[in-house]
Design a protein around this nucleic acid. Sequence first.
DNA 1: TAAAAATAGTCCTGCAGTCGTACTAATTCA
DNA 2: TGAATTAGTACGACTGCAGGACTATTTTTA
Lengths: 148, 148
Amino acid sequence: MAPRLPTALLMQIAARSAEDRIVEALRAAGFDDVTLAQGRLMAGIDVEGTRIGVLAARAQVSKQTATALLAKLERAGYAERIPDLDDGRATLIRPTARTLEAIEHARRQEAEIEADWSAHLGPRRMKQLREALEMLREITDPYFTPME
Amino acid sequence: MAPRLPTALLMQIAARSAEDRIVEALRAAGFDDVTLAQGRLMAGIDVEGTRIGVLAARAQVSKQTATALLAKLERAGYAERIPDLDDGRATLIRPTARTLEAIEHARRQEAEIEADWSAHLGPRRMKQLREALEMLREITDPYFTPME
DNA sequence: TAAAAATAGTCCTGCAGTCGTACTAATTCA
DNA sequence: TGAATTAGTACGACTGCAGGACTATTTTTA
């Protein structure tokens, strides 16, 4: 008899599969010098620039970790540091052309994954899935803000 | 306007929240000498014993990694090695009383999480969520077997 | 059935990720 | 203005992780 897997584990399985596909697609497109952890941080960089602390929070890692990862990203040409004029303590991280290109590739792969999932589930169930996950976010996302 | 987060990311957020809660609950119950990676491996140990390679596959890590993690688990009293009589090359990993106790605590916390989620979503949406996730597993779980 | 190929696990080594502690510089508060 | 807070960094220690090479066993095959 099939053991009923915890809902959270089912999510983890699907999420991991998606992450693997994105990493694979990036690798195939020539972005093979970015690791998974670096990519997660990179995904949080806004076009206008983002503070290190914010990136750390988004990726759910400490600022120390973010600093270390960003140093590597910067060396690989995936991030630029510029001083924050509003606050002398802060540093803004800005994406480079290469960063934006990588993010674009990732988004395309993401869309493909969603399409595959939707094809497998059917649009109705896919819609229900998203609806449930978005609601769940209200109680599981430590950085959830309704207006965001 | 709210940026539509990828479905996979929504899953990751919820799954991580669940994992954090389980780790926290175990820690509170005195199982504070097991790390997350070790716990993931431990979760795969069957009562009758499980081969190292199988545990590695379940946790999606290499055999080398599994060996190292199991050495720590064994030292902490969470696993026992016994030779596999059917195959002289293989080693079976068996849970100890402490392992089973820890797994029991984890299961209880899991049930609590499911209950919280269900309360937030309502039973109908929760059912739909599980249904979609179970279907999705068919195309996202590299170790999925229908009869399991 | 002896030799070759495959398999299970381990050891070694090196590197990425992670964070606690402690620090500097800048800002905000009282 | 002095004290407390905040942003980020440097250092050091540890975990997780896997590739390559190795041993012991089993399975295949010629």
